Amino acid sequence: MPGPKDLDPSSSPRALLGAELRHARENAGLSQDALGEKLFVSGSFIGQLEAGTRRMQPEIAARIDAILGTNGFFQRNCEAANRSRYPDHFAEAAEAEAVATAIKEYAPLLIPGVLQTEAYAREVFRAYRPTATEDVIDGLVEARLARARILADPTKPLLWAVLDEAVLRRRVGGPAVMAEALQHIARLGRAHRIIVQVLPFEAGAHSSMGGALKLMAFDDAPPLAYLEGPGAGQLHDDPATVKHYELSYDLLGAGALSPRESLALITSVAEDYAHEDRHP
């Protein structure tokens, strides 16, 4: 029987690699749990590889080839499947985000990437990389705006964001940039495309004071939790760990303003910035 063909990097390599893994596993008569046991990983991890929500690392690929007798196919195609325009610490989370059916995100300092305007994103990246060339900044902004295309579908994914009040008050790029950025979020909220809540300063201590939190759910793979800090990120798939962060998110929502109150506050702050821009 001929082996699988090498993947075309111009197509959707992660999804194709996952589909080939499922095909090879089923041909070998192995369940996800059985293959996971041989690889010393969980069955849910195998499911995430097959769904394209997790990266297949070269060492895992080599062991898969050995177990399934796929003649080096997965090891050869790992590089194509793992190419990304995003930083290494965020690439896997960004690619999972693109296929998620539901995303819940707590943002302590910055507007979430998928909700940023071009001007806001440019200011953020310029602050991160003050000596970078304009071409580099342009590339980073383009990649960030590309993530927002997941909102082009009018119904999916479900996007629920809890914004710390600091997100509204921190002047990224000045009043004009902030007015546009907050008006954009308010428009999406009023159009019922996203759910947004604001966690006010007076809420005090809360369940996610350690930093940003993103939860992602999928149709055909277990959920993931992503924690991000400066230049670093952790993607978690352990069910108990994900459940812990789901509770943290639920508590954030319980302590935040209602969606209606939040939209009113976001709109009001945006109007304040717009007035300030017109009358400096």
Score class of each variant (00 low, 15 high):
Phe40Gln: 10
His275Gln: 14
Gly139Arg: 04
Ser258Glu: 04
Phe45Asp: 02
Lys104Trp: 08
Thr117Phe: 00
Phe90Val: 02
Arg63Met: 13
Leu251Ile: 03
Asp237Met: 09
Ala96His: 00
Leu257Thr: 00
Gln197Cys: 02
Ala181Glu: 12
Thr155Glu: 04
Arg187Lys: 15
Glu261Tyr: 12
Gly29Cys: 08
His279Cys: 12
Leu110Asn: 02
Arg83His: 13
Pro239Tyr: 04
Thr267Ile: 07
Trp160Ser: 13
Glu26Gln: 15
Leu158Thr: 06
Pro112Val: 08
Glu50Val: 11
Leu16Glu: 15
Ala107Pro: 02
Gly47Arg: 03
Glu123Ser: 04
Ala232Val: 09
Glu142Ser: 15
Phe125Ala: 03
His23Lys: 15
Gly211Asp: 03
Gly29Ile: 11
Gly231Asp: 13
Arg22Trp: 07
Arg126Glu: 14
Ala15Arg: 13
Leu115Ile: 05
Ser268Val: 00
Ala93Phe: 15
Ala225Pro: 05
Pro108Thr: 11
Met178Val: 11
His275Ile: 13
Met216Phe: 13
Phe218Gly: 05
Asp272Arg: 01
Leu7Met: 06
Cys78Gly: 05
Met1Ile: 05
Ala186Trp: 09
Pro4Phe: 05
Leu21Lys: 01
Ala217Gln: 14
Phe90His: 07
Met178Lys: 08
Leu224Gly: 01
Val196His: 06
